[in-house]
Design a protein around this nucleic acid. Structure first.
Lengths: 367, 367
DNA sequence: TCGCTAGGTTAAATCGATTTATCACAGGGA
DNA sequence: TCCCTGTGATAAATCGATTTAACCTAGCGA
């Protein structure tokens, strides 16, 4: 069955196409209420749906937003970001055109061209983890960067990323507040592929320990692959330290590594959090809440970042201030893997210092 | 800067727009090679990108595919399906318009209308887990169902779902082949929200045990929430059984429940797979490969289902045979959580029967 | 010289809407 | 009678491409 056109509605209502257009779009005009009703009825009867193509062509506005991402599927996070962006788009009558480039620069070029050809009203450039990206040369100047920030910031591109430094501060503070003074940092490997989030979180950790007057033992800083295996191996290094240098708590780069920390602890017969406190990062639903005991961790605000990016892209939200990069807070999700250090250690700690960082009272509710 | 139009190219090359169109589209015509080159150079110089809107309007073909899904982000699986669909689309020069309805029927109606207005060339209706869905009335007849199948199959809608029954067979066979005869089935809760996959996998399990001449003890069938907690509780019921009825292996509805089974085993001091073999389902990357020991499980072929759906939607792949529903194989991913039953039990088994289901020799490589 | 063919190119119609500018008509005042 | 104003509706241009149906010029054979 062929498409119902506006002229079909006009014929059915016995008016011109102009009248139909005016009526259906509620455009200011002097069409009588009687005619209006007739047009609306006709449109309903013939089952008219205006062509978005024709309308877009004429109006030069397509109510369409392009999202370019390096990889949709690598992490479950991607979904949260997309969902946030998608929800905002839907609520504003916009459709999302999604292109996964698979990280291929050539595909990316083609994708940007294709979105241009579609005349998308806005463009979002998303990465699947917090990173600094080279700006593709043909990317529109008003594109919004999601979970990444442009390398050459001269272009004044707007972007939103998690505040990993503040998240690192929050995580470390959580452990210090629980009374720990020997706190390990389970890091990813150094090298070119190292995520910038790792350095930011490490900075936050260092800042908190410094503030608390704790001298960091270099042996507390261990590295591993960002996997449960890597985490286990790294934490075993920590547990191999002599009794008086061994951390009573560990801050893991992410939840996968934290899962490895659980394994390492189990193998030594250490209980969590009684013998070892663990805090992760990412709040990966499939790990954090499912571990035994449930993992205290820092959440990455992917959904909200997705929303933010889309709101900015659509011009619903103005970017306040000078800085075009928005850092989004990473809240601590308190579960059951953090507790006070073992009694005898706690006593030592008390003897050694009287500094107190008091635990903030408002408990974050478990989602 | 305003859009570069085809007329700009024509002017730059000193020819008509018709010529430009014919040349750039490689349409059969009698344009001289010299002119062709001039046109191509002009197009390059002025930076021409044809308007997909105008082209789509004229050709009534948009090179655009709509994907409607109930929820993008609930499970990490979604990403795999999208990635599969997306990859096929990209390789065929099609763009994907993605709409997440959030499961809201009203939103869904609007989404379908919007995609119709966009004149998408094809439509995919995706669910985030294998289920039977009511066909939205305004859904195009040629829509393809992904990871779900239409309730009223009279419409001859094409669909692709995982073959959960065969997957159940494969999982149970894996355990039987390892020598187990007391095999628990860790099921989801009964009731209206129960996934159809649960019944299918259960069927497969029953078939295999029947074939192997094993009478199923009703106590082996336990239920729980589809979470690690639920899995742990359910498996604890199994482990509470008297020694001679207690399963030596469990088939868990999914990997999350299998993770709970690990916890239950640990709490009893049982080692995996020495004391208890465990097989899961789903092959959730963040769980299955990260558990200790890594979990043997059955993979859901989400990526391939996504590809299949898109290939069918685009008409690249013809749906063979009568049945418009394609069942996709769920391969067993062998890791380290399945082994032979404990020695004394194995001896009993051998005494009781001499039936052999021999383990298939080709080891599935760990991805 | 005329007609025909082939080669090279283009004018104009079309897709389906929106938007601008105009038209027709009725009533009122001079 | 003529002009003006307000009301209701529409004809035609436009968005930017594709595609159909010519058009023009040479060259060639009869």
């Amino acid at each position: 069955m062929a498409r119902v056109r506006i002229s079909d509605v006009a014929a059915a209502a016995g008016v011109s196409v102009t009248t139909v257009s005016l009526v259906l779009n509620d455009a200011p005009s002097r069409i009588s209420e009687e005619t209006r009703e007739r047009v609306r009825a006709a449109a309903r009867d013939v089952g008219y749906t205006p062509s978005a193509l024709a309308r877009g062509l004429r109006q030069q506005r397509t109510h369409t937003v392009g999202i370019i991402s390096d990889q949709i599927a690598t992490t479950p996070f991607a979904g949260r970001m997309l969902a946030g962006a998608q929800d905002v788009a839907r609520d504003n009558g916009e459709l999302v055109i999604l292109v996964d480039t698979g990280g291929d620069r050539r595909v990316e070029q083609a994708a940007i061209r294709a979105l241009g050809a579609q005349q998308v009203d806005a463009t979002i450039y998303a990465a699947m983890w917090h990173q600094i990206v080279d700006v593709p040369e043909n990317l529109p100047a008003d594109a919004v960067f999601l979970d990444c920030r442009p390398a050459s910031s001269e272009g004044r591109h707007r972007s939103v990323v998690p505040d990993d430094r503040a998240g690192g501060v929050a995580a470390a503070r959580e452990l210090v507040a629980a009374g720990h003074r020997r706190i390990g940092f389970v890091d990813t490997l150094p090298g070119p592929g190292r995520p910038i989030a790792a350095d930011l979180r490490l900075d936050g950790y260092r800042e908190v320990l410094a503030q608390a007057g704790i001298a960091i033992d270099p042996a507390w800083h261990v590295h591993g692959e960002t996997s449960a295996q890597g985490g286990r191996a790294a934490v075993e290094q920590l547990l191999d330290l002599p009794e008086d240098r061994r951390p009573t708590a560990v801050f893991c780069f992410n939840d996968r590594m934290a899962a490895g920390a659980y394994t390492a602890a189990h193998r030594r017969g250490l209980r969590i959090p009684d013998d070892l406190s663990i805090i992760g990062y990412d709040d990966q639903q499939l790990i954090a809440a499912e571990l035994d005991p449930p993992l205290t961790t820092v959440a990455l605000p992917h959904y909200d970042m997705g929303r933010w990016a889309m709101e900015v892209a659509l011009g619903i939200r103005a970017v306040e201030g000078q800085d075009a990069t928005h850092q989004m807070e990473c809240p601590v999700i308190r579960r059951d893997s953090v507790g006070p250090p073992p009694a005898q250690v706690a006593k030592q700690n008390r003897r050694r210092t009287s500094l107190h960082t008091d635990r903030s009272p408002q408990a974050t509710a478990e989602r």
